[in-house]
């Protein structure tokens, strides 16, 4: 069985030099809805991941956005104070909200 799954390779493989120098990962300009509070998003939410990572969640409730911001603080240790967290939640709910509190 083992033989069937992992075929031993007989000849030593040639050494590739495919990668000699590396380019950068491109920056992607995700569409941002400008509005009150975005500066807090910029200051607090874009250090560990891009804006695309956030808006991929689609339109969500206020409770959902509150939960995400809390998750960032509790699990990922994001250094965000209460005022900023509240402003970010308001911003996200205003622009990426589904109108529902819960």
């Amino acid at each position: 069985m083992k033989k069937l799954l992992l075929t031993a390779v007989l000849a030593a493989s040639p050494l590739f030099a495919q990668i000699s120098a590396k380019g950068e990962v491109p920056y992607v300009a995700f569409p941002v809805k400008m509005g009150q509070g975005f500066d807090e998003v910029q200051a607090n939410c874009l250090m560990c991941h891009s804006f695309g990572y956030i808006i991929n969640q689609g339109k969500q409730s206020k409770k959902f956005w509150r939960g995400k911001v809390d998750k960032m603080i509790v699990h990922f240790k994001a250094p965000i104070n209460k005022q900023s967290a509240d402003i970010v939640v308001e911003y996200l709910f205003e622009h990426y909200g589904n109108g529902k509190e819960e």
């Binding site: 992607v28 991941h49 891009s50 990572y53 991929n56």
Partner: peptide, 9 residues
């Protein structure tokens, strides 16, 4: 299909 550039997804 791009979800994010940092980290790349």
């Amino acid at each position: 299909i791009v979800y994010s550039d940092r980290p790349p997804l």
